[in-house]
């Protein structure tokens, strides 16, 4: 099992205000800490036209992290490919790979907010076709940069597997859905004749926290809740993306928030280790700890990164996905 951490969104929010210059300085410091603590990767997330300045341009953000680290991989989770010219994205990815010794991973997704498509003059109905065409362009221009696809439907992840790309699964996905999607990804790769010869990885964001303290546990679960309120505000809805019925932050916010909080693996280190074994058994190769969440102060973030690094990750180092 490999260990990532994320998602850095670079916001200045109504409830946790800060200057954006501070946000980008903290991003560099956090990347350096993640590297020192032995995490394999750090992941960024993209949105547009939101009041909090949610990062709209992931490649320069990745560049600032890669410039101050030597070993850490930096990944986009996800760059919304239909909104950009893929040739230009490829040139940016090429520059990042060349300047970092090949430490950049490019994760791409569809995007779902109407205003983001309209703001860029891209018809929303073209998004799937644009993603497919964009991927094809990237496969040829940056064949040495690992590609990851964000998807929450069996069809979508199977397609990613059939092309030999990794997938990043949402943290709000309940574990049974993670298992189903991981199986679909493997099947897609098998059915396509195992392109690339080596099974592409399955990454899953997971809400995780190590704590022995009841009050901290309560606070962390509230941070997880608050972090999904943001997505309720953004209008995120898996139901709107495909056939999955769960996690509809538009139809029933209260239930969706409770379900998302319910995915959290939280407790003393042994309980977290057990929870992560279940994640590996569901077929996950790369767990991406969802630690950068609304309300969690940086001292708490750094503290839990240290505890994961010292008490949890060594226990799971030799564990492979089922």
């Amino acid at each position: 099992m490999r260990f990532g951490v994320g998602l850095w969104c670079l916001q200045n929010t109504a409830t946790v205000p800060r200057h954006h210059v501070t946000a980008y300085r903290e991003l560099r410091e956090d990347a350096q800490l993640a590297e020192r603590l032995g995490f394999d990767s750090a992941w960024l997330s993209e949105h547009h036209f939101f009041y909090d300045g949610y990062c709209p341009a992931l490649l320069p953000a990745a560049a600032t992290m890669l410039a101050v680290t030597q070993r850490l991989r930096v990944a986009t989770g996800m760059l919304l490919l239909p909104l950009q010219d893929p040739v230009r994205v490829g040139a940016g990815a090429r520059a990042l790979a060349d300047r970092s010794g090949g430490r950049f991973d490019l994760g791409v997704g569809l995007g779902y907010r109407d205003v983001e498509f309209d703001g860029k003059g891209v018809p929303r109905r073209q998004r799937a076709a644009r993603l497919a065409a964009g991927l094809e362009a990237l496969e040829s221009t940056v064949s040495d940069v690992p590609l990851w696809i964000g998807s929450a439907t069996p069809t979508g992840v199977a397609r990613a597997g059939s092309r030999g790309h990794g997938v990043l699964l949402s943290g709000a996905n309940p574990l049974p859905l993670v298992r189903e999607l991981a199986a679909a990804h493997r099947h897609g790769w098998d059915a396509a004749g195992r392109p690339g010869g080596r099974r592409p990885p399955i990454a899953a964001l997971r809400n995780v926290w190590v704590t022995d303290d009841a009050a901290e546990r309560e606070a962390v679960l509230d941070w997880v809740r608050a972090s999904y309120v943001l997505y309720a505000g953004l209008g995120w809805s898996v139901a709107a993306q495909g056939e999955t019925s769960a996690m509809d932050f538009r139809r029933d916010v209260g239930r969706a928030l409770a379900d998302a909080v319910g995915t959290t693996i939280i407790g003393p280190a042994p309980a977290v280790v057990d929870g992560l074994r279940e994640v590996a058994e569901a077929g996950v190769d790369d767990v991406v700890f969802r630690l950068v969440i609304e309300g969690a102060p940086r001292t708490a973030l750094h503290d839990v990164m240290r505890r994961l690094s010292e008490e949890v990750m060594p226990q799971l180092a030799g564990l492979d996905a089922a």
Binding site: L10, V115, D118, G119, R124
Partner: peptide
């Protein structure tokens, strides 16, 4: 044209490009 107004009925009149 920004916003593009391509998705019709409830397309926004303006967008705020962020961060500044």
């Amino acid at each position: 044209r920004v916003p593009a107004g391509i998705d019709g009925h409830d397309a926004p009149e303006v967008v705020e490009v962020t961060p500044k």
